[in-house]
Write a protein that binds this DNA or RNA. Structure first.
Lengths: 335, 335
DNA sequence: TTGAAAGCGCTAACAC
DNA sequence: GTGTTAGCGCTTTCAA
């Protein structure tokens, strides 16, 4: 069933059918109704390729994320996808993995598919070296690129971020004020937001002159799902003789591991040991006691990101960078 | 940059360029190299719409899932997306929500986009009433439809499922054999696999004549992320006077809630109270003690689903239904 | 208000 | 081994 069939059955030209299809005003009510009737009767839907060929757009946004099974990223994808659809766009998802090479490949694929815009979910798409970010610049030369929780100063790239630095800074100060001095910072990512969080912790600790031994900074290298391995990391730390009575984690999973560690050690939480998580995810209510965690307003970020993208696509001038504040959700693992 | 530009610069016809692009053999090495050089020089990539118009396919698979932020579904999407890409397909993701209406809308959208096949992730797409499954039959009339963990006997619909009935049946028997008699079944879905699991539990309990009071079957109605609400559900049950010393849950999140409940009640796990989860997800290692849970081999299921889909698309005869066995992963919440 | 016709960029059948 | 050409189904001037 094509536009030709419809035009024939309705006794009009294909141009008229096309006008009806695209809601043009220059069609008489009578004709419009006749065409619409035929369209409905035959359940005709226009061929998206043919339309795309002419218009060179398919109302499709490419979404890239390293790993859709990551709790936080999955949630972001969910919000983004829903909000896009609500605005008449749909999305091609690419789970890129964490290597630059596969990211570049996915990016090219999306460009090839003629997406109208690209959303990079998570901050692991930005690299230290400018040359490694070339793949983003190349893409941005063709379509707008949106960054969620990342920042990059390149034309046609827009970012929406949570103020991770401040959130972490204030959370760290709070923990210090409750009397915990030897606080390990437990992290597993050196991405843009990873660095901002670390900086927040570090600044607070340095202000209070508490960052004596550099080994308070603990980088966990391993799967983001392997809680036992994370716990083991902390156990080893203890065995090496490091004394610590608090853990500030860059992610709830790491915080959860810290809670498990404390339990293994026989510490009482939060009396003997404090833990702070990040993302306020499902995990934060999974353990005993429940995690105090930082909520970075993911849905708000996503909503704003989509609004900005749609604005850019509509040709409006939109802010290059938008920052939202996070919020500390107090639960049982801190005093 | 079009195929015409390339052909001109390379001094050949567009047909030759097209042949090079599509890896046809009928091109001399010399010509091929010349064309390739020009293509690379100008970084030309073919227009996907124009190609799609002619071929009426875009090597794209539609993935539908109710909620991509669900741990289990997110993981499934991850596997599926990766395996599709590895085979030269990419995917349009639709998070449909749980209403029939929005599911139908997403389905139509995918058909409109001319996807080559559709994958329904999770069993909540199948309804009791045949008439409610019409949207699937309609889609299957156009493209193959793959079901993950669901079953529907309609032409051009293929299913790959885990044997939830047997897994649950055996797990229930095991728990009974450890001496727990009053076992609550805690579930939150009446989907295809939801029913199969329930049937497994029920069969085992009835065989042992343990299913006296029907209120051992506890349906939780609420968000799959709201662990506290799930816990509360069990507390209320206790307050109503129901005695139970075991919980078999249809999902790890529910099992986690059961662990929390037991803790609140002061029960020791697994001495006084046993808990079994399902899916062997991240959550199963989040609590203390860690959850015994049923692993339903998600990656294997996904791999097989993709293999089947690719086979169907290639025109091969493929099995309508494939069943895999699950496995009980013993951890600390059962004896 | 409507219709005719020229693309959009590519593939593939057919001719040489 | 290579070129010519007819579509694929739609949108959009330009005329009427």
């Amino acid at each position: 069933m094509t536009i030709y069939d419809i035009s024939e059955k309705a006794g009009v030209s294909i141009a008229t059918v096309s006008r009806v299809l695209n809601g043009s005003n220059n069609v008489s009510e009578k004709t419009k109704k006749r065409v619409l009737d035929v369209i409905n009767q035959y359940e005709y839907t226009p061929n998206a390729f043919a339309r795309g060929l002419g218009l060179n757009t398919m109302k499709t946004i490419g979404i890239m994320c390293a790993d859709s099974s990551d709790l936080y990223l999955a949630k972001a994808i969910y919000y983004i996808e829903q909000k896009l659809r609500a605005n008449g766009y749909d999305s091609i998802l690419c789970c890129t993995g964490y290597e630059l090479e596969t990211k570049t490949a996915s990016m090219n694929l999306l460009i090839t598919k003629k997406v109208d815009g690209i959303i990079l979910v998570g901050s692991n798409f930005i690299y230290e070296k400018d040359s490694d970010n070339k793949y983003i610049a190349d893409a941005a030369a063709q379509v707008p690129v949106m960054l969620l929780n990342a920042d990059l100063d390149i034309p046609n790239v827009y970012s929406v971020v949570s103020d991770d630095f401040t959130s972490m800074y204030e959370a760290t100060l709070q923990m210090i004020q409750t009397g915990v001095k030897d606080i390990v910072y437990f992290y597993n990512s050196t991405s843009y937001s990873g660095k901002r969080k670390l900086a927040g912790y570090r600044t607070a600790m340095e202000e209070k002159k508490l960052l004596s031994g550099a080994n308070l900074l603990q980088f966990y290298h391993g799967s983001h799902e392997n809680i036992p391995a994370m716990t083991q990391h902390l156990v080893k730390l203890h065995e090496k003789g490091l004394k610590f009575h608090g853990v500030i984690a860059a992610d709830d999973s790491l915080a959860l591991a810290a809670v498990k560690y404390a339990r293994e050690m026989g510490y009482r939480i939060p009396e003997d040991f404090s833990v702070l998580g990040y993302n306020n995810s499902l995990l934060s209510v999974c353990c005993e006691p429940e995690l105090t965690s930082i909520d970075n307003k993911l849905e708000t970020l996503c909503q704003h990101l989509i609004t900005t993208l749609l604005g850019v696509l509509a040709g409006n001038e939109m802010p290059k960078k938008t920052i939202f504040s996070g919020e500390i959700i107090k639960r049982g693992t801190t005093r």
